[in-house]
Amino acid sequence: MHVDPFEKGWIWLVGIITVIMLGVIFYTAFMWGVHPPSNAFARPETIDPNKLHLSGEFAEDNLGVTTNADGSVNVTMVAARYGFYPQEVEVPADTPVTIRITSRDVIHGFHVKDTNAASMVIPGYVSTVETQFAEPGEYGMLCNEYCGLGHHYMWSRFKVVEKTQGT
């Protein structure tokens, strides 16, 4: 096969670059726990979208922020046309936050702008995101998957406040 030596060199370089990038991805994944949200270890976590409000984790009374014994925080939310409920959420900075969210109706997606809190929100399945917020401030939690004619009106307030001592 006729391949110019410079092209051969290029192909080697591409191979090395690919290995380096994949290496960084695998290293940060397995050593630092850097993954996109999955929540599907042995099997995906399923849920009935039609019965969310009735009982269980996503019942209306259970939505919002709760603090665990070790200081970490859980945020339980439901996405439904056209908002993320509850529509205002407040978490402390520099604290492990676990967001659990599902959809009442169609597919949504959320991204808390300028942070790593992001996920697809699929009716029938539960999404889990684990992250931490360093900067206090008020962030927009914006819907980023088409969910109907009101998609661009769908957003909630995500507030990060200074962590108070002793928690």
Partner: peptide, 16 residues
């Protein structure tokens, strides 16, 4: 590398 470490990693942990 700039985007990976300067944006993704800089924004804090991410998994789930």
């Amino acid at each position: 590398f700039g985007i990976y470490f300067g944006t993704l990693i800089a924004r804090g942990p991410v998994s789930g």
